[in-house]
Design a binder for these strands. Structure first.
Length: 753
DNA sequence: AGTATCGTCGTTTTT
DNA sequence: CGACGATACT
């Protein structure tokens, strides 16, 4: 086991201490991933069956990378059989096995957060609630945190404390919404992200034999980024580990940055209360950064009250001072960053992939991107709208979902009249009402039209039947063929492909390309050779497996098909930079109310999380860190003045250097900047309807040759008439505009004397 | 029925 | 400012 020699003493102890509860407190850059990897390899070499090891990571990417490294040490076969993945993906897998015990189909859909929102929007409307009071995002948050705290809808509704909270917030119906939301998801055979954790808890809590089975299976449990687990997650761990207690959690309380998502820093702070005989190893030697960076980061984090004591140090060189840059605007900030990158590339031949630009909010990326683009610096943005969230992709995925689970209400909503097949809003609403009255899903209503009490005419009835037949044909294909064949068929049979192919507008071209990219991904998926443990009967390369596979992917996991090998500057939020490292790091927008965020400055707890976030940002840097702030910045469309972030003053001045500003040293003394240049709201000049429109009675007075006036097109002469009243259409030749066809009942034409 | 325009809202952060 | 949902229009 030669790799043990690559470890320092504490690392080696953490790796070889395999029995009983272990907590590894790993400072930034202290070789945490290496410890986890080697620990798993060590277990395997000690004869532990890979099937008995569960390793949970925070991102799919981390899981993939770790698997790759274990393959190298312990062999591919071993690595393949490990249960390794994110909480969500591992427990989704288990839930599929055990779905029937919860009354769910094993091919349940996973609602992403847009699907949940859409369902909530529907429910709010159905209940005739004011959507200004019941804001979808807030409702979703409330339900999400209830689930993360393992509070069921019934408990929620019966809890007077919660009810009073909601009452005070003037939202007494939240409990009811929660209950309805759960019911509708159930009826749709759908789980949202939180359900994957919540329902796993329910499953393990209520089904003793299931719990026993997985307790026995997962004899060794390892958890990465433990500081970011929430109650639902830590409770799963507690239950699973209760039998063997071979649980090893790795984390850094100083890097806990997901409290907003329910992550509870107390999980790590209290781990030793839960397991009194826990062995704690502190990895304090940083191998990543220079002394200056480590020291600056330590100074920052020391301002936090809530933390476990740790002493991060490094034997690396002192390195350079941290560069602090003041800019006048976000544009100038972008110019500085881009200019600096060009400079370093030219003078020290540093490649683009050595740089990362980090920011607090995604909205900041725009100005930075523009600056890079202007100078032709290749870059790649992580985050933002993911490939799978694009409309054209979600639409076609909705057909895939219908083929696998037609009860999926959100998918149904998307495809019932897309592409347009003449089933209008009114008919869709009637189907929805019928479904809710009869306690069925919308699919159950339309697939048995004869039985349903639907007030719709035969024309629409037939179109619905065609739709049902179409979906049924997809279902049959999906059960037999591989994902690529079915996907290809659906793309053409629905007419979606043609829709974008025939239109040559740039958006359509790009949508067409995106669909082709999706199909290429499906092809790749379908061609993966079968594993010995996969049952061909279950069509493991079919559409169902495909959509299950991609449901939990984020954009950082998606391989960009257009990716070339050209090195690129990385742009991302600090959150998505967690776990990564770069030689040169720019942290942009270090301003009060931005970093720390405006929403966090009023509470010590939130502020401490912002500080940890800054700590994470700073500790990504290996060689050099740039901190920049702008004195003015556009926000909500108007310019605001900003103060430098308080975090900047938490670093000792001796570690900081303010380099001379690059280009044109504009003086900031000009008092003209004091004048607030508030954006003046555009005055809207409403074209007032002049005179009365032509009423029903007057419509028949319009003849060919009648001279008329139109509010927008001005004066013209009627040159043609067709159709019967009240739906008569007139062709009017407008002066200087040309002929227009207008429906008389809408056009509000004024007859000229 | 489908499109253009209007109006509102928001910004953390993501599995 | 920009995205997106609601509405107004044809």
């Amino acid at each position: 086991m030669s790799y043990l020699e690559e470890l320092n003493e504490v690392q080696r102890k953490a790796v070889t201490h395999t029995e009983g509860p272990v907590m590894v407190l790993a400072g930034a850059g202290s070789g945490k991933t290496r410890v986890l990897t080697y620990r798993i390899a060590y277990l395997l070499e000690s004869g532990v069956d890979p099937y008995n090891i569960l390793a949970l990571t925070f991102t799919n990417k981390a899981a993939r990378e770790m698997k790759a490294r274990i393959s190298k040490i312990a062999g591919e076969d071993m690595a393949k059989s490990l249960w390794m993945g994110t909480f969500h993906s591992v427990f989704a897998r288990i839930l599929r096995f055990e779905a029937d015990k919860l009354g769910f189909p094993s091919n349940f859909t996973i609602y992403d957060s847009d699907d949940s929102k859409s369902l909530l929007r529907t429910l709010i409307k159905e209940q005739n609630l004011d959507d200004k009071v019941y804001k979808v995002n807030q409702v979703q948050n409330r339900i999400s945190s209830a689930k993360n705290s393992l509070i069921s809808a019934e408990q929620y509704q019966n809890d007077t404390f919660i009810y009073n909270e909601d009452l005070q917030a003037k939202k007494p119906m939240l409990g009811k919404l929660y209950g309805m939301y759960v019911k509708r998801c159930f009826k749709s055979g759908a789980m949202d992200f939180d359900d994957l954790l919540y329902l796993t808890n329910i499953l393990l809590r209520d089904q003793a034999e299931v719990l026993l089975k997985y307790q026995d299976k997962f004899r060794y449990i390892m958890v990465d980024e433990f500081q970011d687990t929430n109650y639902a997650q830590s409770n799963i761990l507690k239950m699973l580990a209760a039998r063997h207690e071979n649980i090893c959690v790795v984390g850094d309380d100083a890097q806990s940055i997901y409290a907003f998502r329910g992550a509870n820093i107390q999980n790590i702070l209290n781990f030793k209360n839960q397991y009194p005989d826990v062995a704690i190893y502190k990895l304090e030697q940083n191998y990543r950064s220079t002394k200056n960076i480590v020291q600056a980061a330590n100074q920052v984090i020391s301002k936090n009250k809530e933390q476990l004591k740790k002493d991060v140090w490094t034997s690396n060189a002192d390195g350079e001072q941290i560069k602090l840059v003041k800019c006048l605007s976000e544009t100038e900030e972008g110019s500085f960053v881009a200019g600096e990158i060009l400079d370093l590339k030219a003078k020290e031949s540093i490649n683009e992939d050595q740089f990362a630009i980090l920011y607090r909010t995604n909205a900041q990326s725009r100005a930075l991107e523009e600056a890079l683009r202007k100078r032709n610096i290749p870059y790649r943005i992580f985050g933002g709208t993911s490939f799978y969230q694009r409309k054209e992709i979600k639409d076609i995925l909705a057909y895939f979902r219908m083929a696998i689970n037609p009860n999926d209400e959100e998918a149904f909503k998307r495809v019932i009249n897309y592409p347009a097949r003449g089933i209008g809003q009114t008919s869709v609403d009637r189907i929805l009402i019928a479904a809710s009255e009869e306690g069925k899903s919308q699919w159950e209503i339309v697939s048995d039209l004869e039985a349903a009490h639907l007030n719709i005419n035969t024309g629409i009835r037939n179109r619905i039947k065609e739709f049902v037949d179409l979906i049924k044909s997809f279902q049959i294909l999906a059960s037999q063929d591989d994902a690529y064949e079915v996907g290809n068929h659906i793309a053409s049979a629905t007419g979606i492909l043609k829709l974008f192919y025939s239109d040559k507008s740039p958006e359509s071209v790009s949508r067409y390309e995106n669909i082709q990219e999706l199909l290429a991904g499906m092809k790749e998926f379908s061609e993966i050779p079968l594993e010995p443990d996969e049952n061909p009967e279950e069509n493991p390369r079919g559409l169902g497996s495909f959509i299950q596979d991609i449901a939990l992917l984020t954009d950082t996991d998606v391989k960009d098909q257009k990716e070339d090998d050209q090195p690129k500057v990385a742009l991302m939020t600090v959150h998505s930079a967690k776990g990564l490292e770069f030689p040169y790091v720019f942290i942009a927008g270090l301003e009060e109310n931005l970093f720390p965020s405006q929403l966090s400055v009023n509470s010590r707890k939130d502020l401490e999380e912002e500080r940890r976030l800054f700590y994470v940002a700073l500790t990504r840097a290996e060689k050099r860190a740039y901190l920049s702030f702008a004195t003015t910045r556009f926000r909500y469309g108007s310019m605001v003045y900003s103060e430098p972030s308080r975090f900047l003053s938490e670093i000792d001045q001796s570690l900081i250097e303010m380099p001379k500003r690059m280009s044109g040293e504009q003086r900031t003394t000009s008092s003209s900047y004091k004048l607030s240049r508030q954006a003046i709201p555009r005055k809207l000049v409403k074209p007032t309807a002049s005179g009365n429109g032509v009423s029903g009675a007057a419509m028949d007075q319009i003849k060919i040759g009648t001279r008329v006036n139109h509010a927008r097109f001005g004066r013209g002469e009627v040159v043609g008439l067709e159709g019967e009243l009240p739906n008569r259409k007139a062709t009017v030749d407008f002066k200087g505009i040309g002929k227009k066809q207008l429906l008389l009942k809408f056009a509000q034409l004024q007859i000229m004397e």
